[in-house]
């Protein structure tokens, strides 16, 4: 049973190099209240403000919102990378985050070496590492490339390797950013099968994307983030209806084979 509780989470980034008062005022005026000051009068960007929601087994949550709305920061915070300034994140289950295609891989190391590092991080034994390497090779279709440095891969290959690696270690909670869409159509199909199998196995998926069609297909709940706050929370249809202009929404529904 996996669970993820985000309780009143706030995250702010200090701006260490914006000391000038006049600059501060200018920026403050321009950024419509997203800048604040911390207790020591340092300028901060409030990336997330009082975000709360609870996810349970089988939930597939999508984030939508304009650039800079805090989607990626929220994913990073849920993954435990940024420890929040206020509030708390409670997770039950193994969390894996696919936040950028590189995923902390060392581009100078080969695919197999990167898989080994990832497996060691998961506390795998030597036999399990070999299984993982085979599993990733089979899924990503990279066989002979795994012996080459990752920096020689195409961006699509890096995405495939990252995705295969992250899902092969059976995460119970998978956090994914939109870069997944760099894969080609056949890979997207394969990825969806794998994710569906995972989600059917009673896990949690959190996906951030700009593409309504993807969110409609993959998610059963949608959160609209705006200015670091939750603006809307509901079924994908409800939230997209509010988020998209009516004509686009109708188009997306039509493409997804549903009626408005």
């Amino acid at each position: 049973m996996a669970q993820l509780i985000v309780d009143n989470v706030s995250v702010s980034f200090p701006l260490y190099h914006a000391e000038s008062r006049s600059l501060k005022k200018t920026v403050l005026a321009a950024a419509s209240g997203r800048l604040g000051e911390d207790s020591r009068h340092r300028l901060t960007v409030e990336a997330l403000r009082g975000v709360s929601f609870t996810l349970n087994t089988g939930d597939r949550l999508g984030f939508i919102g304009s650039n800079g709305a805090g989607k990626t920061t929220l994913l990073r915070t849920m993954a435990g990378i940024y420890e929040p300034v206020g509030g708390s994140i409670t997770t039950e289950g193994v969390v894996t985050a696919l936040l950028d295609p590189g995923q902390g891989m060392n581009p100078d190391l080969t695919g197999n070496e990167n898989i080994r590092l990832r497996a060691l991080f998961g506390g795998y034994s030597e036999a399990q590492i070999r299984d993982l390497q085979e599993d990733v090779a089979a899924f990503a279709g990279l066989d002979q490339f795994l012996a080459l440095p990752v920096r020689t891969y195409s961006s699509g290959m890096v995405v495939r390797l990252g995705f295969a690696m992250a899902t092969a270690i059976h995460p119970q909670i998978l956090l994914m950013d939109e870069w997944l869409l760099a894969g080609d159509a056949s890979f997207l199909d394969k990825a969806r099968h794998r994710l569906e199998a995972m989600v059917n196995g009673a896990e949690i998926l959190v996906l951030s994307s700009h593409r309504p069609d993807i969110l409609l297909q993959w998610c059963n709940r949608l959160i609209w983030l705006d200015g670091g706050m939750v603006k809307a929370d509901g079924t994908p249809e409800e939230v997209l209806a509010a988020y998209l202009p009516p004509d686009q929404f109708a188009h997306v529904l039509e493409a997804a084979g549903k009626t408005a």
């Binding site: 049973m1 996996a2 706030s10 435990g80 420890e83 929040p84 300034v85 206020g86 509030g87 708390s88 994140i89 409670t90 997770t91 039950e92 289950g93 193994v94 998961g122 506390g123 795998y124 399990q128 059976h170 119970q172």
Partner: peptide, 13 residues
């Protein structure tokens, strides 16, 4: 492989 769900709380402390 440790698949036992572990409860982890990351709170602003």
């Amino acid at each position: 492989m440790s698949d036992i769900p572990k409860r982890q709380v990351i709170a602003a402390s």
